[in-house]
Structures are given as structure tokens and as C-alpha cells.
Amino acid sequence: DYYQTLGLARGASDEEIKRAYRRQALRYHPDKNKEPGAEEKFKEIAEAYDVLSDPRKREIFD
């Protein structure tokens, strides 16, 4: 679930989605986080943001 990936509730505003993405992206960015799995988590976060930030894709997902 993309909302869960970003730590959001369904119905989150565009601003909340953007804030959550930035927070998670900084936390799991491969240059900042060298833990195994961080790069994969970063890709999941980017995919979630891509879907939720686009109104058309978000409507299909919801």
C-alpha cells in the first residue's frame, strides 16, 4: 500500500504526501543510509510518491 509506504492515512493532502516523501527519501537515500535494503526501500518510496502525487494515478489507485 503506497500510503503505508509513506506512513500516511488514506485521504492525505498533497502537501502531506510531499512532506512524507521528503522525510522518507532523506531517511532511506542510498548516499545517506548504507544499511542493506535501504536502496530498495528508497525505490518503493519513489514509486509511492509517483503514484500519489499524480491525481490521475492516485484516483486509479484509490
Rank of each mutant, 00 (worst) to 15 (best):
D1S: 08
D1V: 03
Y2V: 00
Y2E: 01
Y2T: 01
Y2D: 01
Y3D: 01
Y3H: 05
Y3N: 02
Y3Q: 01
Q4K: 13
Q4R: 08
T5K: 05
T5S: 09
T5L: 11
T5Y: 06
L6H: 00
G7I: 01
G7H: 04
G7W: 01
G7Q: 12
G7P: 00
L8V: 13
L8W: 00
L8A: 09
A9W: 04
A9G: 03
A9E: 06
A9S: 08
A9I: 09
R10N: 11
R10W: 03
R10S: 08
R10K: 11
R10M: 07
G11M: 04
G11F: 03
G11C: 06
G11Y: 04
G11W: 03
G11K: 10
A12T: 06
A12L: 01
A12E: 03
A12K: 01
S13D: 08
S13A: 09
S13I: 04
S13T: 12
S13V: 05
S13G: 12
S13H: 06
D14W: 10
D14I: 13
D14Q: 13
D14M: 12
D14T: 09
E15I: 08
E15H: 12
E15W: 06
E15K: 07
E15A: 12
E15C: 08
E15V: 07
E16D: 11
E16F: 00
E16G: 02
I17S: 01
I17M: 02
I17C: 03
I17Q: 01
K18P: 00
K18H: 14
K18M: 12
A20V: 04
A20Y: 02
A20P: 00
A20W: 00
Y21W: 09
Y21M: 07
R22M: 12
R22T: 08
R22L: 15
R23T: 10
R23F: 13
R23Q: 13
R23G: 10
Q24G: 06
Q24D: 14
Q24M: 12
Q24I: 12
Q24S: 09
Q24W: 12
A25D: 03
A25S: 08
A25R: 14
A25F: 15
L26A: 09
L26F: 13
L26Y: 13
L26D: 11
R27D: 12
R27V: 13
R27K: 11
R27W: 11
Y28H: 03
Y28A: 08
Y28I: 06
H29W: 09
H29L: 13
H29A: 09
H29F: 10
P30D: 02
P30K: 12
P30C: 11
D31K: 12
K32W: 00
K32A: 04
K32L: 02
K32D: 08
N33W: 11
N33H: 13
N33Y: 08
K34F: 02
K34L: 05
E35G: 12
P36F: 12
P36W: 14
P36D: 05
P36C: 13
P36I: 13
G37Q: 11
G37K: 14
G37D: 05
G37C: 10
G37T: 04
G37S: 08
G37W: 08
A38I: 10
A38L: 09
A38S: 09
E39Q: 09
E39W: 10
E40V: 15
E40N: 13
E40M: 15
K41V: 09
K41D: 04
K41T: 07
K41W: 05
K41L: 09
F42Y: 08
F42H: 11
F42G: 06
F42Q: 07
F42M: 05
E44D: 12
E44S: 11
E44V: 05
I45N: 03
I45V: 06
I45D: 02
I45T: 05
I45A: 11
A46Y: 06
E47C: 05
E47D: 12
E47I: 13
A48M: 00
A48V: 00
A48S: 03
A48Q: 01
A48C: 01
A48Y: 02
Y49Q: 05
Y49A: 06
D50V: 13
D50Q: 06
D50W: 04
D50N: 14
V51M: 11
V51F: 15
L52G: 01
L52Y: 00
L52Q: 01
S53T: 11
S53P: 00
S53Q: 06
S53E: 03
S53D: 02
D54Q: 13
D54G: 05
D54N: 12
D54I: 02
D54T: 12
D54K: 10
P55A: 11
R56H: 09
R56P: 04
R56E: 14
R56G: 12
R56K: 11
K57H: 09
K57T: 05
K57Q: 10
K57Y: 02
K57R: 13
K57W: 00
K57F: 00
R58Q: 05
R58L: 02
R58S: 02
E59T: 07
E59H: 04
E59P: 10
E59K: 08
E59D: 05
E59V: 07
E59A: 10
E59F: 03
I60C: 11
I60R: 14
F61Y: 14
F61Q: 04
D62S: 09
D62L: 10
